[in-house]
Design a protein around this nucleic acid. Structure first.
Lengths: 198, 198
DNA sequence: GCCCGTTATGTACGCTCGTACACATGACTT
DNA sequence: AAGTCATGTGTACGAGCGTACATAACGGGC
C-alpha cells in the first residue's frame, strides 16, 4: 500500500537484505487496535471491518493483528464490549448524580438528547452491535449485560416496571431519531419522557 | 455443488457436448429471487448474503442472479422494500380497522405482541435494514417511507405528537424485547402502551 | 555486554466473492 | 416450419479476505 514497498523478492540473493519498517516499541498497541476497530466499525460497518482495514486505521502492519488477536471475531467482541461499557458508564454516572425522581427524569432527557446531537457514530455502533448480537452469542451477552446495567441504573429512581418500560422508550426515541432525517429536538424528547412519567 | 457437475472441460473436443441442466421456463423467477434474498438475509444477515447463497436458496444457477439484477445492491434494495411494505401494510390494516382510540390502542398492543411472538425473522430483517440504511441512501429512503406510513396510520387515531412518540415507544418495545432473553409478555406490552396513552 | 524469549513484521496460501460473458434454448412471430 | 431474440446457464477472472508462519528486532535479566 503506502510506503516504498519495493520488495526485492528473494531473501537469499545478494541484495542488502530486506528493508523492513523499523520495529516499533508500542506498549498498549492492543488497546489502540481495539479503538481503531471501533472507528472502522462506525465508519464502514461490521461488514466492512477487516484485519487490513483496522491495521491501516491504526497504522500498524497486518501481521500485528494476528499477533494480538486470535481471530477477527475476538476483535469485534472486545471492541463492542468496550463500546457498551463506555456508554453504560455515562448512563450510570448521570443517573447516580440525580438526587430525586425529577432530576432522574431530566438526566434521561439529557442523555437521549446528547447521544443524538453529540456522537452519531455511537448510535451507529449500537445498531451494529444489535445486528451482530443477533447471530453471535458472545455479543448477545454483551448487549444483555448492557441492558441489565441500564435498567439497574434506572431502578435507583423508578420501580422495576417503570424502569423497564422507560428503558424501552429511551431505546425507541434514540433509534427513531437516529434513523430519521428529521430528528426530535431536546424539547420533543423531554415532552415524550415527561409524558410517559407523568 | 449439487448435481452431477461432471464438466468435461473443453467445449471443442469430441465429447458428447456439455450436459447442461435443463433450462427451466420460470416466469416470476425474479420475484422468487427477492423472496429468497429475504430468507437469506433473515438467516445469515446482510453480511452473509451473496449471489451464490441466494441462488442456492432459490435453486437457480448463479448466472440467473446477474441476469435478473445488475448488482447485489439492487437485490438488497428490492428485498428490503418488499419487507417494509409488507410490515407497513399489516400495520395500516389493523389500525384502519380500529373504530376508536381504545381499539387503536389495543391494535397497537396486538401488533407489537404478534411481531414478537409470531415471526422473529421479521425482527431480524428490520434491524438488518436499519444498519444497511445507515450507509445506503436508497435504503434510507425505504426506512423513511416506512416510518412516515406508520406515523400516518397512527394519526388516524392520535394527534401528531402522540403518534410520533407512540411510534418511538413501539420501536423501543419491539427492539428491546427482540434482543432480550426475557422478552415482555403481551400483558406487559399492554401495560406499557396503556400507561403512555393514559 | 550478551543472550533470550517476547514482541513485531512481511508475505504466502487457499478460499470466496461479485461480476462478466460466451453460449444454449425454446416461446413466439410470421 | 423456420427464424429470432429475450431468457436462461455455466464458467472464468481478478480482487480481497482471514489466517499461518518464518523471520527479525530489541528490552531486560544475568
Amino acid at each position: 500500500m503506502s510506503g516504498p514497498a519495493g520488495r526485492d523478492g528473494e531473501r537469499s540473493v545478494s541484495g542488502p537484505a530486506v528493508r523492513r519498517r523499523a520495529r516499533r516499541h508500542d506498549p498498549g498497541r492492543r488497546d489502540r487496535l481495539i479503538d481503531a476497530a471501533l472507528a472502522v466499525i462506525a465508519e464502514r460497518g461490521v461488514a466492512g471491518t477487516t484485519h487490513r482495514e483496522i491495521a491501516r486505521a491504526a497504522d500498524v502492519p497486518l501481521g500485528s493483528m494476528t499477533y494480538h488477536f486470535s481471530s477477527l471475531e475476538e476483535v469485534l467482541a472486545e471492541a463492542f464490549t468496550r463500546h457498551a461499557d463506555a456508554v453504560a458508564r455515562v448512563f450510570d454516572e448521570r443517573l447516580s448524580a440525580a438526587r430525586d425522581r425529577d432530576e432522574a427524569a431530566e438526566a434521561v432527557v439529557t442523555l437521549v438528547s446528547d447521544s443524538l446531537l453529540g456522537s452519531p457514530a455511537d448510535l451507529v455502533l449500537s445498531v451494529e452491535l444489535y445486528v451482530a448480537a443477533a447471530r453471535n452469542p458472545a455479543l448477545r451477552a454483551v448487549t444483555q449485560a448492557w441492558m441489565a446495567r441500564s435498567r439497574r441504573a434506572l431502578e435507583r429512581h423508578f420501580d422495576p416496571t417503570t424502569a423497564r418500560e422507560l428503558d424501552a422508550l429511551i431505546e425507541g426515541l434514540v433509534l427513531h431519531s437516529a434513523l430519521s432525517t428529521d430528528p426530535m429536538t431536546p424539547e420533543q424528547i423531554r415532552h415524550a419522557v415527561l409524558r410517559y412519567l407523568r
